[in-house]
Amino acid sequence: MLSTTSFPCFVFVLLWSSFYCSTSNAQQLSIGVTYDKQPLTLHQKYALAATDDSVQIDLLKFYISNIQLMKGKKVVHQVAVKHWLVDYSDTSNLVLNLDVPKGICYNKIKYNIGVDSTTNAAGALGQDLDPMQGMYWAWQSGYINIKIEGESPICTTRDNRFQFHLGGFISPYYALQTKTLKLKNRKEIVLNLALDQVLQFMDLEKQPTIMQPSTAAMELTPIFSSCITVGS
């Protein structure tokens, strides 16, 4: 049994240990993508679950935006980079410096997958939001939040290609997803996307293409978002 004097110390240790407090401003957010629990390699064939077919991913890009670090329900740090385009083909692009001031303590990360409606309705924007990044629908207004492209023999399309361009910023197809995840008590933050789990919800045979804001895009986007977890 705890003594009356040691109890407050025990609570303090518990609370203390549930946060990470930055010791420098070098905190980084890393993105990992796995297929069957192994790091995904683009253009490599993988077994497609529940089928005898294979699948390969040739392109994977998505926006993470409005990243915030939280201590409980309180936002303790807003990351300066408002919109980060994760391009899995560019390994140098998979790490973001969070610039957390020294001494800031946090235990959660909050972020959006996609681009918010205000930004979508703004004019021409630069850097990761520059339309030259290939993430802007040209035939209509709006950013593509998530691009997944590849091929599988199960697709009856030309060259067995599948293309999922998920986005939309106008109701009823406002596809932005907001997530809050509890962090592990460590310096580096790793978010891992289990892409094989996303593909389990894609019917590559019947619907190998989503290219516009739609009900199908609205169904798939939260699945993509839910397949991102805090990695080790």
Binding site: G123, A124, P131, G134, A138, G142
Partner: peptide, 28 residues
């Protein structure tokens, strides 16, 4: 009314395969 901002309008004819058939990144 597919385009909601004048800044972004040019992307539509530029990328249309029936019109200019080009990619903004290539134009850059």
């Amino acid at each position: 009314g597919a385009v909601h901002h004048l800044d972004m309008q040019a992307l539509a004819p530029i990328s249309s395969t029936l019109e200019m058939g080009e990619d903004i990144a290539n134009i850059v």
